[in-house]
């Protein structure tokens, strides 16, 4: 089926990476120009993540008082997620006329809300809402994992209490034996692939999603590769968050 050679005998992939190599990962806090006016307001922080060619922006609004009184939960905060995938984010412009999100995006919203409502310590913010707004500027393969990683970074940057860092990677399989980590667009299109997210770099899986046919006997290795990738990513995220906040500190002083 594959017109491309996804994994050469020398062990290289289409974009020159090795099988277990992650895409380049870079994140930064962008602060809006009127940062000084709202320095205490958390919503002015935007976190930008570039994971390979995925470019994701996340703003976190809250914890704040909900606009709708009926949404108040006395014991804990409520979490909402909206994902906006911009129409110019793909190579081919999305021809869908309506501005409503497609079904896939709605599914992701549901999954991400479910995921982070266990990770964020919601009990510390009773009677409030936290809304996560995701904007995708450019997409490559493994968009869901990029979104999850960006939200984690954003939650840390906005000092929302979380239990631990969630990291996600996508994993694909070539010829039923080689496992590729962190897929790009072409690989995602032609290979059976899935996304896996773990918490704190441990082997605790909090999100897993395979949407293609996948042999049952290979699931063990799939999970193993995914968990390893996640634990590597955790250290990268921690380092980047530390660097970012050092820069921020310098800026303020």
């Amino acid at each position: 089926m594959s017109r491309f050679e996804f994994f050469t005998s020398e062990g290289l992939r289409i974009d020159g990476r090795r099988s277990g190599e992650l895409k380049n990962f870079e994140s930064s806090i962008t602060t809006t120009s009127n940062f000084a006016n709202f320095s205490r307001s958390t919503s002015t922080n935007t976190t930008y993540l570039q994971m390979g060619q995925n470019k994701v922006l996340v703003t976190i609004n809250g914890p704040k008082e909900p606009t709708n009184r009926s949404k108040i939960d006395i014991t804990k905060a409520t979490l909402t997620t909206t994902i906006n995938i911009s129409k110019f984010s793909k190579v081919n412009r999305n021809t869908n006329k309506s501005n409503l999100p497609d079904k896939q995006t709605l599914e992701w919203e549901y999954e991400i809300t479910q995921l982070f409502s266990k990770i964020v310590v919601l009990e510390t913010y009773p009677k409030s809402t936290i809304s996560i707004n995701v904007t995708v500027l450019q997409q490559d393969g493994g968009l869901l994992s990029a979104i999850i990683n960006c939200i984690t970074t954003a939650l840390i940057n906005n000092s929302v209490q979380i239990y631990d860092i969630v990291t996600a990677v996508s994993v694909g399989i070539v010829d039923q034996k080689h496992f590729l980590l962190d897929l790009n667009h072409l690989e995602e299109q032609f290979l059976s692939s899935g996304t896996i997210a773990t918490i704190g770099g441990s082997d605790e899986v909090c999100l897993m999603r395979i949407r293609d046919k996948f042999p049952l006997d290979l699931i063990e290795e799939f999970v193993q590769v995914g968990v390893q990738g996640c634990s590597v990513l955790k250290h990268i995220i921690i380092n980047q968050v530390k660097d970012m906040n050092l820069n921020k500190l310098v800026e303020i002083q």
């Binding site: 479910q114 995921l115 899986v205 999603r209 049952l216 699931i219």
Partner: peptide
């Protein structure tokens, strides 16, 4: 013996082995 869909949409984290 083929997985057609596998979903763990958030919620309680569980050990990979158990999955």
């Amino acid at each position: 013996r083929e997985i057609v869909q596998l979903n763990k949409p958030g919620g309680l984290p569980i050990a990979a082995l158990k999955l």
